[in-house]
Amino acid sequence: MAERIGFFVPCLIDHFEPDVAIHAIEVLKFAGFVVVVPKNQTCCGQPWFNVGLPKLALPYIERFVDRFGGLELDAVVVPSGSCASFLAKHAPETAKRKPGLYKKIKELSAKIREFSDLAYGKLKDVPLAMPRPTRVFYHNSCHMSRELGVLEPPLALIDQTGGVKREEIPLPLPCCGFGGAFSTLLPFLSYRIGERKLEEIAKTGAEVVISADSGCLMHLSSIAKKRPSNVRFVHLASFLYEALPKP
């Protein structure tokens, strides 16, 4: 029987790049999942947790539990690495501040799967191909790789895609400088870190920057707008959507 998965829409995707969510759902359906999208979702609460105000994250965790609890889901998919890492790794500990919440979120937390991680299991033998040859750079999300431990699936999915050449930079892991609240509290520094990351990426000759984290992507693309650059910023879900076999 097909796995039933809940789809969590990260707020940056919901309000800034809604197409990414549509693409992610199409990719997941193609992969054979039954996708359930609960109504009236909000942010996961990570911004308040990360800024040092975990109590303000509680209403968000409560809503998440309210929306996704009791749906008999096999997994909850999150198409953004850092939101997934918050829900999987930090939400339960945070929820201990509110009686009764921990038990409910703990159960759901265990079901959280980052999008590429989940998709890879079903797509690894699918003949993906880009319509025209493309040189890409994969930007790794720190939270996704270091906290969730999801590093290989997005690379493998990109590498199996026909017509794609993946470029790398010598020290591939440094952060892009987004850091959520960091980017608002220290905006110029955050900009400069991203700018230098883009300079490194530009040297590789990549035309497309792919990431599975909506925060990094929004940060990097808004910096790129200030610079002469033809690089496109694409969420992994949109990239895969484009690369799916056409009927």
Partner: peptide
Amino acid sequence: LGWGKARDLPVPASRSFQERFW
């Protein structure tokens, strides 16, 4: 707006994903 001091502010979508979906 703090975030935009150093960069172009991203433009929000006219309709959110959830509005489009539902």
